[in-house]
Design a protein around this nucleic acid. Structure first.
Lengths: 263, 263
DNA sequence: TATTGTGAAACAGTTCACAGCG
DNA sequence: CGCTGTGAACTGTTTCACAATA
């Protein structure tokens, strides 16, 4: 294909045809894989998250009628510095114009392609408690290309009840329904104890991407991606930053041995 | 200059005034500033997040009556490798026993201290829509030491209505109520357009830690920490990983390692 | 001229491997 | 002997600074 967004990655050799990847079953392929991977595309994971942010900012700018923007301005709007922004965009390709800036629409197009947003994604939410309920109704999902297409809960009283316009299905039907509706992303909002078994059911249903809100570490087979969102952990990180600041900005950690300084 | 919207808003930058990136030309003495900063926070940001996870795992283990655990076991339960775990714990101090392992209770005590959990924290949730409603009721906050002590919304019909046992207050009262109830953490769940002004009100009320669910980059004065949770961005990262895998070149093992789970 | 795109340098975080110790 | 704690090596990420160029 002519598109090159991915192998343009800076520093990468001119394109080398994608090496035949080892079959999925191969678990232990040792030394060779890293090399192949590096050649394939070296886009830092951290950059991927930021590209999603740029995409959101760009969409807003386009809505405001902005057609061109410099790295400096876009960086400001996205909360990063311009060098980082340019580096990130260089992973997408060379779509800027020197002396001018970037064409917003063009950039959106290429970032979307890179992020795989041209594919179809459907979301299943499992566990329709407080959080699941909120996510089932969360505008941000459908509006950014992630329609919620299935809801599940274990509570019989909820089965069939429409939430956000979609009826809740039985947990046991997860594999069947996910397969039938071609769910690509599963969101786990169950209590901790149920999360692993729900995750297993999603995997059975062919779901390979999981967003986990339950405070447990999910075990998944190779080839399944998990991202975790742990709200209490976020709070604790804030608590840490707060404590450090209140401690007068520095002395604590360095002298940890003494540990006394804490508080 | 702006903190990096996506991740943590790095620790308190020492003095580095916002504007002055060394003009081009000469690179100033490279060694001095980093040194000062290093002394301030010798504990990697990433490690802090993991410590919060270890804390959760340890609490569960203690509930099960486990009093001692090796780095290997704890690492397995937390989804990281043992070297990383030991390194992380070394930032807390030397509380293990060689040849034996760690005393679970002792470790919890010291991690809590490091994370500042011995302080009192109260949470305010602003924007009682779907998500705000869910968070106001979220067990994970109070159970981990973050009681929700104030709720705010702009909708007059909601004012006074109890949500999770707590009545909703007017947005305009944010500064007053936050100050009075000594709120330390503000959770922003408003629509994007309202987020910045709500954030400003929280800051006026003395809140120095903000957890932002709105899809915008908040501008805050120095000394205020912001963590962002962007659910659509999480989805897009999953989409990217999915697309990459589907494209062939899938060195999944390594990616999973770096991005989601240690394993 | 203004701004991108990018090597190279600096920095941050992770893993290795083994000394040190209970 | 087994397991922690950690310097050193390594890998990933950010920043710098400037050549290329519309």
């Amino acid at each position: 294909m002519q598109r090159n967004g991915r192998d343009v990655a800076g520093g990468a050799r001119p394109e080398v045809p994608a090496e035949v990847p080892p079959a999925d079953g191969v678990v232990d392929a040792p030394a060779t894989i890293p090399a192949a991977r590096e050649r394939a595309r070296a886009i830092p994971q951290a950059a991927v998250g930021r590209l999603a942010v740029y995409l959101r900012v760009l969409s807003a700018l386009i809505d405001q009628g902005v057609t061109t923007i410099s790295s400096e301005e876009l960086a400001g709007a996205a909360g990063v510095n311009s060098a980082k922004l340019r580096k990130d965009l260089s992973y997408v390709g060379s779509y800027g114009t020197r002396g001018v800036g970037y064409d917003t629409a063009l950039l959106v197009e290429h970032i979307e392609r890179l992020l795989g947003l041209t594919r179809h994604h459907s979301v299943a939410v499992v566990g329709i408690g407080n959080l699941g309920h909120a996510l089932a109704n969360y505008d941000g999902f459908p509006s950014r290309g992630f329609p919620v297409a299935a809801l599940f809960d274990i509570d019989e009283d909820l089965i069939g009840v429409p939430v956000g316009g979609l009826p809740v299905d039985r947990i046991d039907d997860v594999p069947r329904v996910c397969a039938r509706r071609e769910i690509t992303i599963g969101v786990v909002c169950t209590p901790a104890v149920a999360a692993q078994s729900v995750c297993d059911l999603l995997v059975d249903g062919g779901v390979r991407c999981i967003l986990n809100f339950a405070p447990v570490v999910l075990q998944v087979p190779e080839g399944v991606e998990v991202r975790k969102v742990d709200l209490a952990v976020e709070m604790q990180i804030l608590s840490f930053l707060d404590a450090r600041r209140a401690d007068g900005l520095l002395p604590v950690i360095e002298l940890v041995d003494g540990l006394a300084v804490g508080r």
